[in-house]
Simulated scan of single mutants.
Amino acid sequence: MSPSTARAARTPTATDVRAAAERIAPYARRTPVMRTEVDGRPLTLKLEYLQRTGAFKLRGALNALLGGEPADRVITASGGNHGLGVATAASLLGIRATVYVPETIPEAKAAPLAATGAEIVRVGEQYADAADAARTRAETEGVRYLHAYDDPLVVAGQGTIGLEIAADAPECDTVAVAVGGGGLVAGVRLGAGGRRVVAVEPEGCQSLHAALAAGRPVAGPVDSIAASALGAAILGRVPFEVLSAHPVTPALVSDEEITRAQDRLWEEFRIATEPAAAVPFAAWLAGRVPGENPCLVVCGANADWRRVS
């Protein structure tokens, strides 16, 4: 087994998250937490949408490129945010990046991605189509393929959010996170210091619920307004192994609840999020996030702000 294969096969730990925090500190922002009250209930928001690139994905990309075997080129696939994270991280580190995206990528994500100077290739209608094409090219050309969420270094990098919450908001007893392929929730579970983690999915994109029901990652439908960020058809193997050893509390929200949560975030805080980032808030508004002092991760804001009026 090669070093890269051995690394890919290893399940990340809390120690890996702490190492990731030190590794990415010179490049990633330590995003703030905001303590507030909504509808008479205390609430803390982790403002990760203030991260460079407008989303949390930069953390995992930086950790993977800094912690992996040295390379001058990387290929990835993304619904938008991961690609922007990889392209930005690659630019910071002097690495060439090629990003495959679905043809349906929102322009609010496509435009900043193109501005990084990375090679952009549009393929198919869903993330899975772009990922298949990207992996094929990476194998053909002998270039490293960086998975959006099924990579231990990526998971550990995303976990630095949980580490920051534990340090900056120690009174929080619950952390709620949106779930797509599972990289963020698995990382936060490792980094949050034993706090309860609520894993929230749209009703139309239930990769975690499907994996828990089947006892393994299985493919499922992708149909939600949050699909551009949470549209993984199957949970990653690495996140599944983390969450099998460190269980989380699953929850579901409807598209209508997500839209209302987006509107409330704007009305209450003037935060214009993409649908995926409103998913934890939607679950909290619906009473599906337990805890006396919950923290919700507002994970990204790469949406067209002009839709907000």
Results as ranks from 00 to 15, higher is better:
G236E: 11
G236T: 11
R237A: 14
V238T: 15
V238P: 11
V238E: 06
P239R: 14
P239L: 11
P239C: 13
F240E: 06
F240Y: 15
V242I: 10
V242G: 12
V242C: 08
V242S: 09
L243N: 11
S244G: 15
A245F: 10
A245M: 04
A245S: 14
H246M: 03
V248P: 08
V248C: 11
V248K: 05
T249N: 11
T249K: 13
T249W: 11
P250M: 13
P250N: 10
L252N: 13
L252W: 10
L252F: 08
S254C: 13
S254Y: 06
S254E: 12
S254V: 04
D255S: 14
D255A: 08
D255M: 05
E256K: 15
E257C: 10
I258G: 02
I258S: 03
R260G: 06
R260V: 09
A261T: 03
A261P: 03
D263R: 08
R264S: 01
R264N: 01
W266H: 13
W266R: 03
W266A: 14
E267F: 06
E267N: 10
E268R: 15
F269K: 04
R270S: 07
R270Q: 13
I271C: 01
A272L: 13
A272I: 07
A272F: 14
A272D: 02
T273P: 01
E274H: 01
E274T: 00
E274M: 00
E274D: 03
A276V: 02
A277E: 00
A277N: 00
A277F: 00
A277S: 00
A277I: 00
A278K: 11
P280G: 07
P280S: 04
P280K: 13
F281R: 00
F281M: 01
A282K: 05
W284Y: 05
A286R: 10
G287P: 09
G287Y: 12
R288D: 15
R288T: 13
R288C: 07
P290E: 02
P290Q: 04
G291F: 09
G291E: 05
G291N: 11
E292A: 14
N293L: 12
C295R: 01
C295I: 02
V297D: 01
C299A: 10
C299F: 04
G300E: 02
A301G: 15
A301L: 02
A301F: 02
N302Y: 11
N302P: 08
N302Q: 08
A303K: 02
D304C: 04
D304Y: 05
W305Q: 08
R306P: 05
R306Q: 12
R307A: 11
V308R: 15
S309V: 08
